[in-house]
Design a protein around this nucleic acid. Sequence first.
DNA 1: AATTGATTGTCCATTAATGAACAACTAGAT
DNA 2: ATCTAGTTGTTCATTAATGGACAATCAATT
Lengths: 192, 192
Amino acid sequence: MTNKNDYIDRRILKSKKALKDAIISLMQQKDFKEVTISDIVRLADLNRGTFYKHYQYKEDLLDDIIDEVITDLIASYREPYQNIATFDVSKLSSNAIKIFEHVHKYAEFYKLIVNSNVLTSFQHKICIVIKDLVMQDVTGKLTNPNINKELIASYHSYAIFGMMIELIHSGFKYSSSYMAEQLLAIIHSHNN
Amino acid sequence: MTNKNDYIDRRILKSKKALKDAIISLMQQKDFKEVTISDIVRLADLNRGTFYKHYQYKEDLLDDIIDEVITDLIASYREPYQNIATFDVSKLSSNAIKIFEHVHKYAEFYKLIVNSNVLTSFQHKICIVIKDLVMQDVTGKLTNPNINKELIASYHSYAIFGMMIELIHSGFKYSSSYMAEQLLAIIHSHNN
DNA sequence: AATTGATTGTCCATTAATGAACAACTAGAT
DNA sequence: ATCTAGTTGTTCATTAATGGACAATCAATT
């Protein structure tokens, strides 16, 4: 299905990464609309033509970042389930939970969206994505038929999002494994 | 004197930096002779041909790093004197002292040489370079003619080197400005 | 002794990034 | 109102890095 040559050249990945890092760094210093493309390529240490080869506006670059983060968020949430049949977070070991590693990985971006007022829309997007993921868990295993799936999905997804926010506000002083342990401890204290 | 086109293409600088970072990182994990070129380019995320375009052996890469560090060390030591006539460390303000920023800048490299037994020769090289720099200070200003210049140069250079070692052993928990303040405080407590 | 898997050094055609130039536009300072 | 310095979008020839191939070498396994 996918093309035989559907890998992406490393140079492209490196250039895009440099541009992404640069715009995130600049947005921590000043407002998005004040960040110029010349600023971005200057910090990214790239020729301006390289920017235009990949993007047209700053907005495209930002969209690309958001896409990447969401893709990685979904992958990180799903990764532990790859080789097992169950679909129950509480059954996972704490070191199998990868979502907080994802938050660490994109620490600069998350710091940005939590503080910034530009990307409040993305915060909702995050919540929706997590909720969808949790929904698939819930639909997979039918525990108590009296429980509203939407409600429990919302409950868990916002709980996870809340922990993410706490992690970010703390300045990332908690390790991913600690966060995962805490998540499990909290869940088990409810369910046992 | 220098060629009109004597700048270096950014791509070369980036590739070399990636190779340098990679070999330093690998040498923190295993012995130098066990680090393969494939290891280096794998971590540096570069094609193997790129390594061979710039270097022939691993040793060349290591030599290049050492050259760069020493060049930066000298520049960092001299920078404060650029626009002033005096040549007396004790006359500088603490925030003018740049040498500890240099150590921070090459933190990974310094951690490596302090621990590793491969690069003990480089430790001597560092001392000699610093001593030469201090010597120029001492020759510039003739304070007490009874004082042996070689001796005072050795004294100060090893003192600075000692502080660098202490900074590295501490895991870089002291800021550059703090280090500089301490250096000045120590000097002044002797001279006043 | 034969085999497997990895590294090494070298090659090449293709592609991405580069520096430099350009005219057009903008914002601030004089 | 003019001047200055900067950004923008685009173009182009040149250069660096790429992926992929190759035979040769080496170490550990069988």
